[in-house]
Design a protein around this nucleic acid. Structure first.
Length: 124
DNA sequence: GCCTTGACGTTAG
DNA sequence: ACTAACGCCAAGG
């Protein structure tokens, strides 16, 4: 099930047997303490540049228990550094608090990406 | 099946 | 700097 990524043509997630979610999780796990990444970069690293949305969907499917300990979902923000996923935590403030606990710096309600953005290594 | 809804992103105005 | 229109695609009704 290799996808051909010709220029302009991006990987299509459509397959049920795909391990897309797993690959998202593996990548998110690699985000270092005190750093953040974006939905778009993660999607792109997986060869699904146009499917940033599905990255969020995958994270939404992460069990609450894994959310804090196994998979650092709070380190994924949108491309402007906004905490677009905060409503999916136990309380709307948790996400920011977790980031601040890692000394992540904010400007207003957006993360200082200059300082904390982590770019995933391109896989495959 | 059709329609709507999103933890998104780009582009145009 | 802000809004609107798309493109994207899995789920749920």
């Amino acid at each position: 099930m290799k996808m051909i990524v010709a220029e302009g043509c991006t990987y299509n997630i459509k397959r049920r047997d795909d391990d897309f979610y797993e690959r998202v999780y593996n990548l998110v796990k690699q985000i270092p303490f005190g750093r953040v990444s974006t939905y778009g970069l993660i999607a792109e690293a997986l060869g699904a540049k146009s499917s940033a949305r599905m990255v969020g969907w995958a994270l939404n499917a992460v069990p609450l228990s894994d959310r804090q300990y196994e998979i650092p979902c709070h380190r994924v923000v949108n491309r402007l550094g906004e905490l677009s996923g905060k409503l999916h935590f136990e309380t709307p403030t948790i996400m920011r608090e977790m980031l601040e606990a890692e000394d992540v710096e904010f400007t207003g309600d957006t993360v200082n990406l200059e300082k904390h953005l982590w770019k995933p290594a391109f896989s495959e």
